[in-house]
Amino acid sequence: MIVVHWIDRADCGTGGWQLRRAAGRALLSDTAAALGVASLRVLRRPGRRPEVETPGIWFSMSHTGDLTVCAVATSNVAIDVEHKSEPRERRLAGAVPPGFFTAEEQTMIARDPSRLLPVFTAKEAWAKYRGLGLSLGFGSFDEASVVADDPEVQFTRVFIDGAVCTACHQAGDDVVVSRRSLSPQQLEAGAAIDRSERAR
């Protein structure tokens, strides 16, 4: 099972990057608890995706605007979210480097610009899933080719108000999604844990 929790950080007050870090770490604890994981520590190593010390537990997190989304599972999982708005889509389309999309994706997006964010978030989720980041060669694959090459992989659209979100995970895993709110105590604890983990 994959547990996906999301928050709107605007509900938590203001605080810039400090709030983003605190809320993200608090949300990770909240999401892991829903999967029955009482506590975990995040390992951060240069050039690699963050991971947890707890064997057999995977997590992925994504932020856009005031939204933070976290997925926790007992198998590899990755998630990406983008705020849905015409100005955001225009900015993103202008910032995507040449070669990011396959020729088929470029044609599809030109015909229907609303396809940009689903395609973009699926590619980002796959890159996180593989742990390869920008070295993956985004223009060399699309969602259909990934699944054709590895039937054990599945992409799931996660419905979040005002956003487009895609999870990449092992085929057949159930995805349970909940909007959450964080208490001031959770935010305070999240900030303390985040500081401790980053100091290591």
Rank of each mutant, 00 (worst) to 15 (best):
T74L: 06
T74I: 04
T74A: 13
T74E: 13
S75P: 03
S75E: 14
S75W: 06
S75V: 06
S75Q: 14
N76G: 12
N76V: 08
V77K: 11
V77L: 08
V77D: 05
V77N: 11
A78F: 09
A78E: 11
I79C: 12
I79H: 09
I79Y: 10
D80H: 09
D80I: 03
D80F: 01
V81T: 15
V81I: 15
V81R: 13
E82D: 10
E82G: 03
E82P: 05
K84N: 14
S85N: 04
E86N: 07
P87R: 10
R88H: 12
E89L: 05
E89D: 15
E89S: 14
R90S: 11
R90N: 08
R90E: 08
R90G: 02
R91A: 15
R91E: 15
R91V: 03
L92T: 12
L92H: 08
L92N: 05
A93E: 07
A93G: 06
A93N: 11
G94Y: 07
A95W: 05
A95K: 13
A95H: 10
A95E: 11
V96Y: 00
V96F: 00
V96M: 01
P97N: 07
P97H: 11
P97F: 02
P98D: 14
P98W: 02
P98S: 13
P98I: 05
P98A: 13
G99C: 10
G99N: 13
F100E: 01
F100V: 08
F101N: 02
T102R: 02
A103R: 12
A103P: 07
A103L: 11
E104P: 02
E105L: 04
E105K: 02
E105M: 04
E105P: 04
Q106R: 01
Q106D: 02
Q106F: 00
T107L: 03
T107I: 07
T107V: 05
M108S: 13
M108N: 05
M108C: 12
M108W: 13
M108F: 07
I109W: 08
A110Q: 14
A110Y: 12
A110R: 15
A110H: 13
R111H: 06
R111G: 02
D112E: 14
D112I: 03
P113K: 08
P113Q: 06
P113A: 07
P113C: 09
P113S: 09
S114A: 15
S114M: 05
R115N: 11
R115L: 13
L116M: 07
L116A: 10
L117M: 14
L117F: 13
L117A: 00
L117G: 00
L117D: 00
P118M: 02
P118Q: 04
V119Y: 00
F120C: 04
F120M: 06
